[in-house]
Amino acid sequence: MRPTVRAVALLLLGGLLSGCLSAYVGPAPDESSVVTAPPSPAPSSSSTPFTGTVTIRDFAFDPADFTVHPGAVITVRNTGTVTHTLTAQDPTTFDTGPIAPGGTASFIAPSRPGTYPYLCGYHHFMRGLLTVA
């Protein structure tokens, strides 16, 4: 390819990749949004019942959406290769702090029933929903 054509192709490819990435890495969510709980507990997104442990693997929470009782202890295990957190959109509600690869951390679910969106403080595309019922 000629240098000019190659430069234009690289610019176009960069723009496409940038647009794709921006769909996953956006601004931090609004920290003031807490939604009321549905009338019945939301089912876990995984096929197995929630055991009290959330595993972080391959830049995803497993399960991402789960239901607990008020005040339940939730353990988070990082099986990935980089540091992660499990942090409520309002970080004063719950936050594991940094969890190094191979590490674990725990937090206590809120005492007030409701749904609490959360994310990884380092990777905002990693998201989930904690329901307290």
Rank of each mutant, 00 (worst) to 15 (best):
G128A: 05
P91L: 10
A88D: 11
G114M: 02
V132M: 05
D95V: 00
P91G: 10
G26Y: 04
V8Y: 00
Y116N: 11
C120W: 04
Y24A: 15
A133I: 00
Y122L: 14
L12Y: 08
A9L: 05
T92A: 12
S47L: 12
S47N: 13
S111M: 05
F125S: 10
P27V: 08
V73F: 01
L12C: 15
T79R: 04
R57I: 04
G102Q: 07
V54T: 09
P113S: 14
P41I: 11
G26V: 08
L129A: 04
P117W: 06
P70Y: 09
T83E: 06
L16P: 07
Y118S: 11
T92R: 04
A60E: 13
G80P: 01
S32M: 05
G52Y: 04
E31T: 02
P91T: 07
Q89C: 04
S44M: 08
A72N: 02
V54P: 03
R77S: 11
D30W: 03
T79Y: 04
G80V: 00
A42T: 03
A7T: 02
T4I: 03
G97S: 05
A28G: 05
F66K: 08
I74N: 09
A23M: 09
A7D: 07
G97D: 06
T51H: 09
G15H: 09
V82T: 07
G114L: 03
D95F: 04
A109D: 06
V54M: 08
P29T: 07
P41M: 14
P49L: 14
T48H: 14
L86F: 06
F66D: 15
V34A: 15
P117T: 08
Y122Q: 11
L17E: 14
A42L: 11
P113C: 12
L17I: 11
T131C: 02
P91E: 12
A7C: 00
A9H: 05
T115Q: 14
A23T: 08
I108D: 09
I74Y: 07
G19R: 10
T92Y: 00
A9W: 03
S33M: 09
P29D: 09
L119H: 11
S106I: 01
Y118I: 06
P49R: 15
L16H: 13
P49S: 15
D95S: 04
V76L: 04
L16A: 15
A100W: 00
S44Q: 13
S45T: 12
C20N: 12
T131M: 03
S40L: 07
T85S: 14
L11P: 03
H123S: 06
T36W: 06
G15D: 12
P70R: 12
M126W: 00
Y116Q: 10
S33T: 08
A133H: 09
P70T: 08
V132A: 07
G128Y: 00
L130W: 03
F107D: 14
D30T: 03
T79S: 13
T85H: 07
